[in-house]
Computed example of a mutant assay.
Amino acid sequence: MATNYSNPILEDQIDQFLCDENNLLIKLDNKKLIDQDMAIVVEQAIQKKQCTYLDLQDNEITSEGMPILALALSENSKLHTLYLHDNHLFDKGIYSLAQILTSNNHTLKILGLNSIGLTDVGAEDLAVMLQKNRTLTHLQLQANEIDNRGILYLAEALTKSNTTLEQLELAENKLVNDSSVDLLVEIIKHNRSLKVLNVRLCNISDSGKTKLQAATEANKDLQLML
């Protein structure tokens, strides 16, 4: 990335956000932000403003811009919500973020990764993160390209290690089909922290949905969205 890059408009936009009762919500969605803008976002929004909520969805950020954002999270104790939906991140972009959230961040609770081109490779990185992370409560992975192998990775983390995730959004992952039903049943039956599991508009048959619904009898606290 060019070191002489500047974006005065972005800096002005960030500067206009004001803190409200110790919470600072910075919404930079749909601003056509690019990778070079991430250094500005980190310096002005995360480090200077110490925002607690950062919305970067629907921009033009790629995997090249993610390492600097991920590194900032390793040194941050304020940000609890990060939305990255609808960026061109793909699996490569998630790797550095998952690495940081594995052990070097104890603040982020909500992570939005809908429609970023995530496949089983990225799902595995996130599953490894979930095995050790004890802070994240909401993980949004809707409308990606996760298939049954990705569900396997997530199921292993959620049935054997993770006890803090409360909401998992998997809706509109069209490659998830009946081969994942037994894995999802295991999550429903054996994970006691999860309160919402959303698998709407996946490729699960009516019989598969019936099996999932029946599994909730063993976990009355879980809201299953089919």
Rank of each mutant, 00 (worst) to 15 (best):
Tyr153Leu: 12
Leu71Ala: 14
Gln223Trp: 03
Leu224Asp: 07
Ser96Thr: 09
His106Ala: 08
Gln167Lys: 12
Asn219Cys: 01
Lys109Glu: 15
Leu222Trp: 08
Tyr53Thr: 07
Thr210Ile: 14
Thr216Ala: 00
Thr216Tyr: 06
Gln47Phe: 13
Ile146Asp: 09
Asn105His: 05
Thr3Asn: 11
Asn191Pro: 06
Glu172Thr: 04
Gln167Tyr: 12
Ser77Ala: 06
Leu212Gly: 00
Leu139Phe: 05
His85Tyr: 05
Asn177Leu: 03
Asn177Gln: 05
Thr164Ser: 13
Ser161His: 15
Lys49His: 10
Pro8Val: 05
Ser179Trp: 06
Asp20Ala: 01
Tyr95Ala: 14
Ser161Cys: 11
Val41Glu: 00
Cys202Phe: 10
Leu28Asn: 01
Ile146Gln: 02
Leu194His: 04
Asp15Leu: 07
Cys51Gln: 06
Ser6Trp: 00
Lys49Asn: 12
Thr81Val: 12
Asn30Thr: 04
Asp37Val: 09
Leu158Cys: 06
Tyr153Lys: 13
Leu226Lys: 00
Asp147Trp: 13
Thr52Ser: 08
Ile110Asp: 10
Ala2Met: 03
Glu186Asn: 09
Gln223Pro: 00
Gln213His: 06
Leu113Ala: 08
Glu43Val: 12
Thr216Gly: 01
Leu25Val: 15
Ile61Arg: 04
Lys31Glu: 10
Thr210Pro: 11
Leu197Cys: 02
Glu11Asn: 00
Asp178Gly: 01
Lys31Tyr: 13
Tyr153Asp: 13
Asn22Ile: 14
Ser6Arg: 10
Tyr53Ile: 08
Ala123Val: 11
Thr102Glu: 14
Val199Glu: 01
